[in-house]
Write a protein that binds this DNA or RNA. Structure first.
Length: 207
DNA sequence: TGCCAGGCCCTCTTTAGGGCCTT
């Protein structure tokens, strides 16, 4: 994973079939450095529920006149390219990306890896694995002047979290650059067996 | 009007149920 895209959607709710994306954030990371950032508000075509405005700060008036999600997806597809995507609770963002790309008529099914699943394995001493709680627990930097639950702010926090998680993996596998397949396997390894999994991987690296 | 999700994990489980996490 020399290059990967961290992606985050703010939406009108939890269901990709009934709800729509109202903001997307994307950070492209290459060789541990941020090389591109992108965020865009989108008009879902209906009023944003009040509880979503309370959570995100994004109101109906803020998205009025903004492009529809299907107008934003082509540019998003262009940036993501064929890079693997990182997201916190990736099944959620993967579902909305797939739904909005489908509405836009664009084939786009990038590989996803999940920072939440990985954090559950590698940060087992944190009581909660919400993004904000993990960032606080690990003492990671938060984007100055940016509100949490906005797409780009959450992307930047996920970048910090992901770097931290990768440092933990690489500290046990010196010289090894984790690929999405390896991360997926690690993310699906039972918590109690994570150390054994990494030990086996280290043995393979050294052999 | 009110409701609409889904993958993963844990346990009082596996012929299930409930919590976490995303918005």
């Amino acid at each position: 994973m020399q290059t990967y895209a961290v992606i985050d959607f703010e939406t009108t709710g939890l269901s990709p079939n009934f709800d729509r994306a109202i903001e997307v954030g994307l950070v492209l990371v290459r060789n541990h450095e941020i090389v591109e950032t992108y965020s865009e508000l989108m008009d879902p075509g209906f009023a944003i529920p009040s509880h979503i405005t309370s959570l995100t700060g994004i109101s109906t008036s803020m998205v009025r006149g903004k492009p529809k999600p299907e107008k934003v997806m082509p540019h998003l597809r262009e940036i993501v390219g064929s890079y693997p995507c990182v997201a916190h609770n990736a099944s959620f963002d993967r579902g909305f990306l797939a739904a909005e790309m489908r509405r836009a008529g664009i084939p786009c099914q990038p590989e996803f890896v999940c920072s939440m699943l990985l954090a559950r394995r590698l940060v087992q001493d944190c009581a909660s694995h919400k993004l904000g709680m993990l960032v606080q627990h690990l003492g990671l930097a938060t984007p100055a002047g940016m509100r949490a639950h906005r797409a780009l702010a959450d992307c930047l926090m996920t970048v910090e979290l992901w770097r931290c998680l990768m440092e933990r993996v690489e500290s046990q596998l010196p010289g090894y650059v984790p690929d999405p397949g390896f991360i997926t396997k690690l993310s699906r390894t039972p918590k109690a067996k994570v150390d054994a999994f990494l030990s086996r991987a280290a043995a393979q690296v050294c052999s």
